[in-house]
Write a protein that binds this DNA or RNA. Structure first.
Ligand SMILES: [Mn+2]
Ligand SMILES: [Mn+2]
Ligand SMILES: [Zn+2]
Ligand SMILES: [Zn+2]
Lengths: 138, 138
DNA sequence: CAAACGCATGCAACTTTGTTGCAAAATGAT
DNA sequence: ATCATTTTGCAACAAAGTTGCATGCGTTTG
């Protein structure tokens, strides 16, 4: 894990610092998405709030994580697949949000289906969010 | 319009007040979705910020409007179709957000396609957001 | 139409969330 | 070990959202 974390940071030309290692560790350990608040809670007093914001921002820019829009408009972040880069993301998968436990899961294998738009609209990116009950809560 | 507004409020057992009429009017006049900030700007000093929050909350609960999750995690609201009620919504249509002008449009005729989930997940509601360029901006 | 009731509003105070500038500290290269 | 460059923490601020309470307005009833 330690090695994996270092590798991800190095690959993205980021210096290896305490907060980056810790936050990346949290993402790798969690199988779901994390909110800014989750991260703050889990890191405790260890890092400043501002550092968490800036670290997430950096990870976003590098394509290490992506955001997930949620129906209640909270901000969630999840690890990107390996082939995401600064410019180009490949996160065209469906996201599932459990309305019971709140867990948000990247369904990496479920590709967002195509949809035909009315004339005039030029689509660029598709997002699909499914809410419901997860395995544990149903 | 005035009559239409009254009818919507009455149908939902809401008293007809200044702020509710004005905010509903804004939604009916706009063909896109509105953010809380948009509404505040357009109503000016006429109503308190808190009143706008509470009015939107009430409309949400009654099923008069629905929220739209956006990739940048801002909160957008749009009118529901007639057959939405307190408990049950029928807003299973695609939403389009223009990345140039920011306008958000309900594609009421475009139904969200079905998608097969891995075993264990019990889906309840589907959301689909497409970003890109609208007719005016392309 | 007047009176009375109950809900909606405005205001103030507060919390939460996110941003910015700057000095000190940590990192990576030499 | 030294130095240049980033990153961090702190403080101050701005924006966004919430809550309690007294007052005002809309609705109902007689
Ligand atoms: Mn994902
Ligand atoms: Mn809609
Ligand atoms: Zn669950
Ligand atoms: Zn546009």
């Amino acid at each position: 894990m330690e090695a994996q974390i270092d590798e991800i940071l190095r690959k993205n030309q980021l210096s290896v610092t305490g907060s980056r290692k810790r936050i990346l560790e949290l993402f790798l350990a969690s199988n779901g998405a994390l909110a800014h608040g989750d991260i703050e809670k889990k890191t405790g007093e260890k890092f400043d709030r501002v550092t968490v914001y800036r670290t997430l921002q950096t990870f976003l820019e590098k394509g290490i994580i992506h955001t997930i829009p949620t129906p209640d408009n909270s901000v969630l972040y999840a690890l990107c697949k390996d082939n995401c880069t600064e410019g180009h993301h490949h996160d065209n998968h469906v996201h599932f949000i459990c309305r019971e436990c709140g867990k948000t899961i990247c369904l990496a294998d479920i590709t967002i289906p195509e949809v035909k738009l009315p004339g005039g609209f030029l689509p660029h990116e598709y997002q699909m969010i499914v809410t419901g009950l997860c395995k544990e809560c149903r």
